Simulated scan of single mutants.
Amino acid sequence: MNQNFKIKEAKELLEKEGYIVFKPSKIQLEHSKECEECGFEGDCFDCACSICLMQQ
């Protein structure tokens, strides 16, 4: 069994159980770091981080 198949199988299992599974993009990770540094306070209008989803 290769790594990609295992990842796909795990993702499908979690999604079947109602979980949201995604790999954050580079920009999402950068923005989430900025949000964390400012205490999650600020304007989310141009923010791509989706930290609201990542915290759950």
Rank of each mutant, 00 (worst) to 15 (best):
K6V: 04
A48E: 08
K8W: 06
M54Y: 03
D43W: 07
E15P: 07
C47Q: 05
S50E: 11
K33G: 01
K26V: 13
E37H: 08
D43M: 03
E41G: 01
Q3K: 15
A10I: 07
I20R: 14
Q28G: 06
F5Y: 09
K11L: 06
N2G: 06
E37G: 03
E36L: 06
S50Q: 11
K33A: 07
C38S: 14
C35I: 01
C35T: 00
A10K: 13
E15Q: 15
N2E: 11
E41A: 05
Q56G: 05
K11P: 01
I27V: 07
S25T: 15
E12L: 08
N4V: 05
L14H: 00
C38R: 15
A10V: 05
C52S: 12
K33Y: 10
I7P: 01
D46F: 14
I27Y: 09
C44Y: 12
K6Q: 10
L14E: 01
N4G: 04
D46S: 09
E17T: 03
F40G: 02
S32F: 09
S25Y: 15
L29M: 12
I7V: 09
E30V: 12
C47G: 03
K16V: 02
L29Q: 12
I20E: 15
I20P: 02
C52H: 14
I7W: 10
G42A: 04
V21Q: 05
E37L: 13
M54C: 06
E17G: 03
N2M: 06
L14Y: 02
Q28V: 02
E9W: 15
